[in-house]
Design a protein around this nucleic acid. Structure first.
Length: 287
DNA sequence: CGCTTTTGACCCGCGC
DNA sequence: GCGCGGGTCAAAAGCG
């Protein structure tokens, strides 16, 4: 579970399905996918050289026609390496979903309607796993800025990991997107962020499809151009593309390494500013 | 005062 | 059936 190559995969059959694929598959598949997005990303280039973690962009195509969640725009100033794993679960086939997601829109309404006993509430719920994405981001900050507001609702110690896992839920009451944040036990500088679900709203404080959350100046400064939170199925890829470009073009990024071979993270001292704005492609900025 | 975080308890799924 | 581990709940505390 805590293998940086397999972020949070062990508890989900769908994840395991992904991990069953070897790296060649990922490279090949990634190249195919990226080429569909007109990316010029060489799958085995800089992404595979990061932090001693043989990561690559591990992206798979959705088995469903669901759009890719727009929530997975996590990044940080420290994003020197990113691995993305997309998992889709057919929500119409609960038998294919193993466990863990206890909420969907309908459940949300029933669960919040009354203080029913937990047993009843739990029984009424069907744990339907939604589409999930895992990001591996090299960062000192656990909670990476992604343009949405999150409320922490739990934290658990994870077996075989010295770092706890934090559970967040989108603060939008109608939005059931959740994310889990944990650090890799093998490389504590790597943050594994797993998103589940799709946002049904735009990012906070972006009334014009634009960019600046008005109420969170610490996290969003004027130069942070966040992407439109619309259901853009390519957003992850765009994000990664930009990350990749930064990796290869910025002299500050992964080229510098620490003694243990890990990448020094130049912007790590300014985590509250985030980097998402910097890594969002121009094409995704305010039109 | 309202929102967020913390944290122990509880529930569920799964493997044995 | 039992134990374990993951995920969630919800009350209390903290914070601006």
């Amino acid at each position: 579970m805590n293998d940086p190559k397999d972020p949070d995969l062990s508890d989900d059959s769908a994840w395991r399905e992904l991990t069953a694929s070897d790296s060649d598959f990922f490279y090949r598949d990634t190249s195919t996918i990226l080429s569909e997005f007109a990316w010029n990303l060489h799958a085995s280039s800089s992404f595979t050289q990061t932090a001693g973690v043989p990561s690559s962009i591990t992206t798979t195509t959705s088995k469903t026609d669901q759009p890719i969640p727009t929530s997975s725009c996590s990044s940080s100033a420290a994003a020197a390496s990113v691995t993305v794993t997309e998992v889709s679960t057919n929500v119409n086939n609960p038998s294919a979903a193993t466990s863990s997601s206890s909420e969907d829109p309908t459940e949300n309404s029933t669960a919040s309607a009354a203080k029913t006993p937990k047993k009843e509430k739990k029984k009424a719920q069907k744990r339907i796993r939604q589409q999930r994405f895992a990001f591996m981001t090299k960062s000192d900050v656990d909670n990476l800025e992604d343009g949405y507001r999150w409320r922490k609702y739990g934290q658990k110690a994870v077996k075989n990991s010295s770092f706890p896992r934090s559970y967040y839920r989108c603060t939008n009451s109608r939005c059931t997107v959740k994310k889990r944040v944990e650090r890799s036990s093998e490389d504590p500088s790597i943050v594994i962020t797993t998103y589940e679900g799709q946002h049904c709203h735009q990012t906070v404080g972006f009334p014009r499809g634009g960019i600046f959350p008005a109420h969170d100046p610490h996290n969003f400064t004027s130069h942070h151009h966040l992407p439109p939170p619309l259901p853009n199925p390519y957003y992850y890829q765009e994000l990664l593309h930009q990350l990749h470009r930064e990796n290869t073009s910025s002299p500050q990024l992964p080229q510098s390494t620490t003694d243990d071979g890990h990448f020094a993270v130049p912007s790590i001292n300014q985590p509250e500013e985030g980097l998402l704005g910097d890594i969002v492609p121009q094409t995704m900025r305010n039109p």
